[in-house]
Write a protein that binds this DNA or RNA. Structure first.
Lengths: 344, 344
DNA sequence: ATGAAAGCGCTAACAC
DNA sequence: GTGTTAGCGCTTTCAT
């Protein structure tokens, strides 16, 4: 079987059609009218040779790749998968392809991902960064690369666009709800240690507690819960020591899911024995065996904002315009009133 | 702010370091020794200029992009998201980047996705095709593009590698289980109309029925169930006409999920009033409020096979070797014995 | 160990 | 309307 280097080039098409490569180029891109005779000959040659222009070569003259990159901690995460799907679709409609990098919250991998995207000269970069690579990102931004960050704010990385949710306010709101239901012993599951997203949710929790004259209790705070095995101990503790806490707040949809699974396994009834709330996603938390009271993120709205911003920046970059003020879009979340938080 | 065309080239580095571009190239790629003095000067120049080689330009000389594409109906689908995550990771480790296309089972979009990937000269293509683009795929394969199909077999597209599950046998197995539990009125949810994957599962269902001397009843077969709204009528029918069927088999994990959600909403107890089974995924069906009896697909095993095959083919293509026999890997599924199928 | 120069496949002035 | 030609930024003979 032939190696696929056997691809036809514009020269082959030109020769076959008996015209110059310029004419072929013009025909392909519609940059200029070409005569009907030539058109037909070229069309025939293209079909005969199965000609497909080489986009990489094109990109070097055009100085744009019509590719944007998205870098996220985990594409199989429900929220991010939804974001990616819509971003891919919207960009596709705008004539861009999407390259995805999934970093697993590994700083080293994220670094190499970013580098790789830069070497590929993507026209734009969408990134939910775990942090620690801000110097690299800053340089890229300073170089004029259209870029929008999302999910996790990077306080030391200004001058770029952000798409965020108000995690602190939302965490405060949900915590207040729990307090209003009479709970005083409230457990909190923190997320990935280095994530500013997780940190903000934690701060919002503390805010609400403070407003009620309370303070977080060490014994009720669970660090770095990323896995089902990280979440199991929470319910085990409760069973060992009934009354240790009456409500638990999860700071990610995954944590909620793990808690639901563990609650079933360990036969802890929700909200009977334990109230559960936190951060969810529509169409995900819907599967839980109760109406979930929680803050609902909207992946589609996030994606829409991301695409709107990056397209805008890329247009500016193409036209050599000044970028102007960095944008900061806060995507509102919905407060879902369910029955997973009971009165105490 | 400067346009990001302000990128340094190999010429800039050479000039800054006082050497020729050849030397810089050799230094970057380690293709040949360069003197210590030159090395240091180049290193300094690179840092100073923030030089990042242009991968697209490189690719045209090297005749490889170190990029592979994966095209799937929906990246936010749990199974595919998991597959993509692992494929991305494995390929990344092998030095390849992954471009993802999500087609929404739209033939037109799939076609343009494939074309786009070919124009980008990806070194390999992984695709779960909805069908109907087999001529394009066949030409690509004939051109020597390493390619492996998965999920949905394309009977008219031979000579390429496949990673599949034995859907027909698995559907037969799960149906037989339902029959063995005494069910005779069994409802079946078919999947996306044009999907050969869905078709195979349907055939396996028919096989088992036939073995038991039964035949599918039109009133119990639901076509083209892709959404929650497609699944709701199933349970509504049962409530309108109790005893219409005693068990339901879903042909995709999503259908199972929708049925679970609807069962809760419509207050149909599983397996009390209705037995439920079908095709699931570990860590997904785990969330259901019962132990699910079903066939479990293994996204990781699928991904491993995909990557192993494509890497092998790409190595062959690079070395100009003959491709030899097409491979066909059947990934085994696990039969999960739960309690969602009751005795009748 | 280093450099000059010939491409890779394409686009875009600039001629005609 | 069409062709000539000079690049785009890089790798790679082939000399030195």
């Amino acid at each position: 079987m032939a190696s696929h280097n056997s691809k036809a080039t514009i020269w082959d098409v030109a020769a076959e059609a008996g015209v110059s490569i310029t004419t072929v180029s013009r025909y392909m891109n519609g940059t200029q009218r070409v005569g009907p005779a030539a058109s037909e000959a070229i069309e025939r040659a293209i079909r005969k040779l199965d000609y497909l222009p080489n986009a990489n070569v094109r990109s070097i003259k055009l100085r744009q790749t019509r590719t944007v990159a998205i870098i996220v901690p985990d594409i199989s995460n429900f929220f991010l998968a939804r974001v990616c799907r819509r971003v891919e679709h919207l960009l596709y409609q705008a004539g861009y392809a999407l390259i995805i990098g999934s970093t697993g919250n590994n700083v080293e991998k994220e670094h190499r991902c970013i580098r790789s995207m830069l070497e590929r000269r993507v026209d734009g970069l969408l990134i939910s960064s775990a942090g620690q690579n801000n110097d690299l990102l800053r340089r890229a931004a300073a170089d004029g690369l259209p870029m929008v960050l999302f999910e996790s704010p990077q306080p030391d990385l200004g001058g770029v666009d952000y798409v965020l949710e108000d995690n602190r306010a939302n965490a405060r709101l949900i915590t207040r709800t729990v307090l209003e239901h009479g709970h005083r012993k409230i457990s909190f599951l923190k997320g990935f240690a280095h994530s500013t997203l997780a940190e903000e949710r934690w701060l919002g929790f503390c805010d609400a507690l403070a407003e009620a004259g309370l303070a977080p209790e060490d014994a009720l705070v669970w660090e770095n819960c990323r896995d089902r095995t990280d979440c199991a101990p929470v319910l085990e503790a409760l069973r060992r020591q009934p009354g240790l806490f009456t409500a638990v707040i999860a700071s990610t949809p995954e944590q909620m899911k793990f808690l639901v699974m563990e609650a079933r396994r360990q036969k802890v009834s929700i909200p009977g024995q334990l109230s559960l709330t936190g951060f969810g996603i529509e169409d995900y938390t819907a599967l839980f065996p109760f109406e979930t009271t929680c803050i609902l993120s909207d992946p589609l709205a996030n994606a829409d904002a991301l695409v709107a911003l990056i397209l805008h920046r890329m247009a500016q970059a193409r036209d050599g315009e000044n970028f102007g003020e960095p944008q900061r879009r806060i995507i509102p979340c919905r407060f879902a009133q369910g029955d997973s938080v009971g009165r105490v």
